[in-house]
């Protein structure tokens, strides 16, 4: 019962967060100079033609009125239409979700597959060995190279030598898996570099910390071999901070995905949001931000639960 109450409270907070984010984004977007009616008609246009557009989309109503009607519609499950294509936003986002999910999934998986083993290796290695130096170097470089710098470099390099990979040739995975992967490898790699560095560094530090714990000394004193110590004790205990960082990474990823999708012309939700922002297609940005904040809030809740699964102390605290 207590657990249910706790979850309910968490969800309430989550919804409140999403509402606040929506409101902030709504206000921020309307404070941006230039409106949809200018974008759609171009600079050389008459007042009359612009007025037709603002009236058509209710952009001439007061801001609270506009926000409330948007909110009421969303609560009824209606995200409205894109002012540019006049297609339901939900459909447009749904169509693009695949690319973004695939991109972020590939980036997370790559970051974990590369960052975790390297981080563990760097954490376990003696301070003198090159493994640790290498780990530090990769960590520092990867974490300090912005996605867009790396992305621009990669786009340029692969426009000269394609190496079988494509830039801007996105095809849905189930249409042509090979072409899809060829198009997604570069953006996903770009997106994963920061994650690799982040996860590598966190894992390394986390492993280093765990290695000084009493239960590791205890296991060593019992004569357990290093491999089983790592497997039984180090990985489990080192995973907690890594999980936290992985969530932070996931939130950063959504931001990174926007940049990478723009750079590599991956038609995902990020590119959609960005273009909508530039085009002042308010409803689209609004809905996409709602989605993003929902994902982040959900991720945080999932990590909470995962934490409890790994660390019984937290579970105990919650149930008591």
């Amino acid at each position: 019962m207590r657990l249910l109450l706790h979850i309910a409270a968490r969800m309430g907070m989550a919804l409140l967060t999403m509402l606040s984010v929506s409101l902030i984004v709504f206000v921020a977007m309307r404070m941006l100079p230039g409106g949809f009616e200018m974008i759609i008609l171009g600079p050389i246009q008459t007042e009359e033609a612009r007025a037709v557009i603002t009236e058509q989309f209710g952009l001439d109503r007061s801001l609270p009125e506009q926000f409330l009607s948007w909110l009421v519609a969303v609560l009824h499950g209606d995200f409205g239409i894109s002012m540019i294509t006049r297609i339901p936003i939900a459909d447009e986002i749904l169509r693009r979700l695949g690319a973004t999910v695939q991109l972020t999934a590939m980036a997370v998986i790559t970051a974990l597959c590369v960052g975790l083993p390297l981080g563990v290796a760097a954490g376990l290695a003696d301070s003198s060995t090159s493994v640790r130096t290498c780990g530090r170097l990769v960590g520092a470089l990867g974490a300090s190279t912005p996605d867009f710098v790396l992305g621009v470099a990669l786009v340029y390099i692969f426009s000269v030598w394609s190496l079988g990979l494509t830039v801007g040739g996105y095809v849905p995975f189930f249409e042509d898996p090979l072409a899809n992967l060829r198009a997604m490898i570069l953006p996903a790699s770009t997106l994963s570099v920061f994650g690799i560095a982040l996860i590598l560094r966190t894992t390394r530090e986390s492993v280093l910390t765990v290695m000084t714990e009493g239960y590791i000394t205890g296991a060593v004193a019992r004569g357990d071999d290093p491999a089983s110590i790592v497997r039984r004790h180090v990985l489990r205990n080192a995973s907690l901070p890594v999980m936290t960082v992985a969530t932070i990474y996931l939130s950063l990823l959504l931001g990174g995905a926007v940049i990478v999708e723009i750079l590599f012309t991956v038609p995902g939700v990020g590119l959609y949001t960005w273009n909508a922002l530039l085009n002042r297609d308010y409803g689209v940005t609004q809905s996409a931000v709602l989605l993003f904040s929902g994902v982040i809030v959900t991720c945080n809740m999932l990590v909470d639960i995962a934490y409890a699964l790994v660390d019984p102390r937290i579970r105990g605290r919650r149930q008591q």
Partner: peptide, 18 residues
């Protein structure tokens, strides 16, 4: 019509025949 805003992306697409 493929929408490719980036110059390099269009060059790459020309190169590989997309």
């Amino acid at each position: 019509i493929r929408i490719l805003p980036d110059d390099s992306a269009r060059i790459a697409a020309l190169r590989d025949g997309r």
